[in-house]
Simulated scan of single mutants.
Amino acid sequence: MSNDSRRLTIGALANEARVNVETIRFYQRKGLLPEPHKPHGGIRRYGELEVARVRFVKSAQRIGFSLDEIADLLRLEDGTHCDEASRLAEHKLDDIRAKLADLARMESVLSQLVCACHTRKGSVSCPLIASLQGSGQERIPGDAEPA
């Protein structure tokens, strides 16, 4: 992959890409970054293409792509498969929106339970604990009715 004049050691590559050396090795094991040839008695060298690839992987991770999804995106890295890349991104966006909906539901339920804890009176059991134990005294809002 390295076809430029900069010849970096793995440590320099990691430093340039703002990751640690183990991240580079992990990406190589996962097939996200090719391992360059090691000359007899020498050390492997990397270039700007590898720096760019590691940065690509980190950028994709920051917006929620898994390493498997990133591998799919890397297969499209020549930039001529925009429709395919768009489909992958749309699928990821759907996943993120579903997670956001789940988080909103969890926030609402937990908020109701915390409120119930703060408004309880006397020696009744804790509404949060009771709902998590499924004691029947308190049902977790949003849970399906038992069959």
Rank of each mutant, 00 (worst) to 15 (best):
I10E: 05
K30Q: 15
Y46Q: 04
H37F: 14
V54I: 08
M106H: 12
L33N: 00
Q61E: 11
E84L: 13
A17Q: 06
G142I: 06
A17R: 02
L67Q: 00
C117F: 06
R6G: 04
V57A: 02
L13C: 11
L49W: 08
G42I: 09
L128D: 01
D4Q: 07
C117P: 02
G136W: 12
R139V: 07
K121E: 15
D143I: 07
S59K: 07
T119M: 03
Y27V: 01
P127G: 03
I63R: 04
N15W: 07
G47K: 07
R6M: 15
R62V: 06
P141H: 09
I96L: 14
S59C: 15
L74W: 01
R25L: 01
R25W: 02
G136P: 08
G79P: 06
D68M: 05
F56Y: 09
D68S: 07
D95S: 14
I10Y: 11
G41F: 10
D102W: 07
N15P: 00
N20Y: 02
S108M: 09
I43Q: 15
G79F: 04
F56W: 08
H118M: 11
A71D: 03
R29W: 07
R120E: 08
S59I: 06
R120Q: 12
A130G: 01
Q137G: 09
R62M: 06
P146T: 01
R18E: 15
L32R: 01
L73E: 01
C126R: 04
R55Q: 14
D95R: 15
S111E: 08
L110Y: 10
V124C: 09
A85E: 02
A52S: 14
Y27D: 07
E16L: 05
L49V: 08
R53G: 05
A147D: 12
A12M: 08
R55M: 14
S131T: 02
D95L: 13
P146S: 04
I24N: 13
G31E: 02
V109C: 05
R45F: 09
A89D: 01
Y46E: 05
S123E: 14
L33P: 04
G42S: 13
G64M: 07
L128R: 01
G11N: 09
E69D: 10
H118E: 15
E107C: 08
G41C: 11
L128H: 04
S111R: 14
A104P: 00
D143F: 10
L8E: 01
E48D: 15
K30M: 13
I63E: 00
A14W: 05
G64I: 03
D4K: 10
V57M: 04
P146I: 01
E77H: 14
T23K: 06
K38T: 15
S66G: 04
H81M: 06
K99V: 00
D83N: 10
H91E: 08
L113S: 04
V51P: 02
L74I: 11
G142L: 02
V51I: 11
R6S: 10
R97M: 09
V19M: 00
V19K: 02
P146R: 03
A101S: 13
Q112R: 13
L103E: 02
S135K: 10
R55E: 13
A104M: 05
E22C: 04
F65A: 02
E35Q: 12
A17E: 07
L8S: 01
A17K: 02
A71K: 10
R97W: 05
K92R: 15
